Computed example of a mutant assay.
Amino acid sequence: MTFASRNVGAARAGIATLILFLIGMGMAAMLAVTIPEQNKDAFLMLIGGLNTAMGGIIQFYFNIGSRRSAGG
């Protein structure tokens, strides 16, 4: 493992941690804070985008689709 590949792995883990933290804070905000009606759609779109990013993180780290055998 070279220095560059180790840094890329650390960057990916850092970005994954940041996305998970942001979605956790967004969910906590939905429970704890009353969101104004004019900002509700924008906030839900932000949570949806973070949810999509979290799906990419899960797919990358757990690689769910490619573990299934083609032979049955």
Rank of each mutant, 00 (worst) to 15 (best):
F60D: 12
A13Y: 10
G71L: 12
K40S: 08
A11P: 00
K40Q: 13
A13K: 10
S66L: 11
I19V: 15
T52A: 09
F21V: 07
G14C: 04
L50R: 01
A16H: 03
N7T: 04
T52I: 14
M25I: 14
I58S: 02
F3A: 15
G55L: 11
F62P: 01
L18G: 03
V33D: 07
A11K: 04
A28K: 13
G72V: 02
G48C: 05
I57R: 00
N39K: 07
Y61Q: 09
G14M: 08
T2A: 13
N51K: 06
I64L: 11
T2H: 10
M54F: 05
I35W: 04
L44R: 09
A70K: 12
Y61E: 13
S69V: 09
G26L: 04
N63K: 13
A28E: 09
G56M: 11
I35T: 12
M45N: 10
S5K: 13
L44H: 08
M25T: 09
S5A: 10
S5Q: 15
M27K: 08
K40R: 14
I35A: 02
G14T: 02
T34V: 11
N63M: 08
V33T: 08
S66V: 12
S66P: 00
A28R: 09
K40L: 15
G72H: 05
S69Y: 08
T52Q: 05
L20N: 04
G65C: 06
I57L: 04
T2I: 07
G71Q: 12
F60G: 02
M54Q: 03
A29W: 05
A13E: 14
G48E: 04
M30I: 03
I23Q: 00
E37K: 10
M27I: 13
I64R: 05
S66Y: 07
L46C: 07
I19M: 05
F21R: 11
A70N: 11
L22G: 01
M30F: 05
I64Y: 07
T34H: 13
L31R: 07
G71R: 10
Y61F: 15
G65F: 13
F43A: 02
I23W: 00
A53H: 02
I19A: 07
F62V: 06
A70D: 13
I57W: 01
R6H: 09
F43G: 00
G56D: 06
M45Y: 12
Q38H: 12
F62M: 06
A32Q: 08
L44Y: 10
G56N: 10
A70Y: 08
L50Q: 02
I47E: 01
G49M: 11
M54W: 01
V8T: 09
K40D: 09
